[in-house]
Amino acid sequence: MKEHGADIGNKKAVYAELQDVWVGYYNKWVLKSIYLKCYQGEIFGIVGPNGGGKSTLLKVILGLVRPQKGVVKLFGHRPDKHTRLEVGYLPQISKADRSFPVTALDVVLMGLYNRIGFFKRPGSKSREIAMEMLARINMAEHAEKPFGLLSGGQQQRVHIARALASKPKLLVLDEPSTGVDSVAQEDFYELLAKFRDEMNISVIMVSHDIGVITAHADRIACLNLEIHYHGEPDSCFEPEIMQKVYGKNLNIMVHDSRCATCSLKKHEHND
């Protein structure tokens, strides 16, 4: 049922797919009957209110959360430790300790550990790749700084570089722009588009900022417990859909030219 909206054509590989996925915590559904397809070479945005299940959805795609019901496919297989190797993941809140004794470069290098293999140390080749990644997010000058001494936004950029470092086929980003200033944000989304165009990678990215998602995603899903819209960004802003996603008492908050009528603020679970 839920597959309205434009499909990108049948030739492209499906990188991530959910079919009738249900997830609940303690007798409460968090995701209900989710259908979703993310194709190779697209930036797929997921929007929705706080608590709408966005982070949970990403964890389902990665196989970190097992659904009670439904089918999850990552590159056509069940998500497991082998399929995940092709994924770069940026969690919403990194559990990383601020005072962890590593440099920014060390953190980016972690993104390459799975390529380096057991019992080996990162060599000069890996350091080169990591430095190049840092340069692309304008953090090269901070490479040798202790991670804990960077600002929150700078740390987020380092995490992004880490997720990109292994040149994954699929990037899964949970609120990637948290704490990142708008100039760096624009650069970052440009970088994502460049990765998509050059290497034909896919990006699944979550945000509660509709403006950001509509400006940068090829297709989007609006999620609040269920998926209310799944297609191209423009038509997401029909008031009817917005109301379903964000609830009854909408406060007007202008995001960009395209979503003047949309709004988000207080929301309730419509369950």
């Binding site: 190797l85 559990k95 300790d97 972690m110 550990y113 292994s166 899964v172």
Partner: peptide, 16 residues
């Protein structure tokens, strides 16, 4: 070191 830094990310990166 990676697992101590961020367990969830390490798991997704294929660390056992």
């Amino acid at each position: 070191l990676f697992v101590s830094f961020d367990k969830e990310v390490a798991l997704v990166s294929g660390m056992p």
